[in-house]
């Protein structure tokens, strides 16, 4: 207990913010999976994205924080909410909750957890400690990010854009109405 207290005494304000945000993130993430109503689930997911953006700000990656909010909270989650509102999933859908699906989801989830824990415990994945000499507070800012994206990571970046283009064309093809299609 005393160790615990002394740990809290050594924390900086940033440390307190980090702990607070982490608790909030975890609770809203748990809310996503436990909420019975899909709308509450989506709202909890939006809260999770906000907390993640808070973490990005703490890491001084403001651009990433803003883009996370614009893309995920601002666009994708609006579409999620939009679709769920249309589906009107108020009544419980009992068919998809048989014992078999429950067992399967527990097994899959457990395997994923074991995998993640092994990855995080591996020596090569340990987060290096901060050294005051090589630390630059400006690493996460837009200018540096842009420089990096358009020099070292130009190939993955361009490949991702091609992927988006393919996805867009695919969506247009799916949504296109052929001559004989039903008009609804």
């Amino acid at each position: 207990m005393t160790e615990f207290l002394s740990f809290f005494k050594t924390l900086t304000p940033t440390g307190y913010l980090f702990l607070f945000l982490t608790v909030l993130t975890l609770f809203s993430a748990i809310g996503v999976v436990t909420a019975r109503n899909p709308i509450y689930s989506v709202l909890a997911l939006i809260a999770t994205f906000f907390c993640l953006s808070g973490h990005y700000v703490l890491l001084n990656a403001q651009f990433l924080a803003a883009v996370n909010i614009i893309v995920y909270a601002g666009a994708i989650m609006v579409l999620f909410l939009f679709t769920i509102m249309f589906l009107n999933l108020r009544k419980e859908d009992e068919e998809s909750k048989t014992n078999l699906t429950k067992m399967a989801s527990v097994v899959v989830g457990g395997l994923l957890m074991i995998m993640l824990i092994t990855i995080f415990r591996a020596k090569s994945a340990q987060v290096p400690t901060v050294s005051a000499t090589s630390f630059s507070a400006k690493t996460g800012l837009v200018e540096n990010l842009g420089q990096l994206l358009y020099s070292d990571y130009i190939l993955p970046f361009e490949l991702a854009s091609v992927l988006f283009l393919v996805a867009m064309v695919g969506a247009v093809m799916l949504g296109k109405r052929e001559a004989g299609d039903r008009h609804f």
Binding site: I69, A73, G74, V142
Partner: peptide, 12 residues
Amino acid sequence: NIGVLYIFGVVS
């Protein structure tokens, strides 16, 4: 330094 993105995010 990301003011425009901030406004865009809040608007969205």
